[in-house]
Design a protein around this nucleic acid. Structure first.
Lengths: 93, 93
DNA sequence: ACAACATATTGACAGATTTCAATATATCAA
DNA sequence: TTGATATATTGAAATCTGTCAATATGTTGT
């Protein structure tokens, strides 16, 4: 198991603003400008958070003209689910 | 949804040493001294990590004489699973 | 009570993370 | 091409986190 990669994945989920972004994206693809409206953070800060979420494959981005559209990505979410699924509680002594 | 609590939960999983601890505990309850042997960290650092894992309810501790036994706890793991499960990818526009 | 041991707490430091202002890059419209 | 707009990057400051040495607390055996 790759501890570094897994830690990075959970790090991406370990921030209140990023959780709120994920929450908004549950509703479907959104433009960066919409996310900026919803959060009380500056534009560079949003851009930084989006990079972290994209790097973790929790979110994917699509550029259309001068706009960036973001949506949830299955890959990262699946990785996290898989990790948790493997946390079986054994009765080993 | 409680962003702070959820962020804390994922923060607890966002560290390589703590992931390794979880990995070891998958095998069943372990004494703190065993964890200390397995990890390349000092005793106070281990104690600090265990507190974070316990606070997130990912691990529970049991004191027996002068020893502490730790094991995986269902509550935190379930909370994380539930969060991920709710990350449904909708087609809403 | 005292010594030995296991774990927890405190205090300090280094490195990581979040944040914003300033600036850069890219796209569109006139 | 120029100006306006959307997003990304850079650089710096404040805060948070992981770490260890030193010390405290709690337990067991003598």
């Amino acid at each position: 198991m790759d501890y570094k990669k897994t830690a990075n994945l959970f790090k991406a989920l370990a921030d209140e603003n990023r959780l709120q972004i994920m929450e908004i994206l549950k509703d479907g693809e959104k433009c960066a400008c919409k996310l900026l409206e919803a959060l009380q953070i500056s534009q560079p800060t949003l851009s930084h958070h989006m990079k972290i979420l994209c790097d973790a494959e929790l979110v994917s981005g699509r550029k259309e003209g001068k706009w960036m559209y973001y949506s949830l990505s299955k890959a990262g979410i699946k990785n996290a689910k898989t990790y948790l699924k493997e946390l079986k509680i054994s009765e080993g002594k």
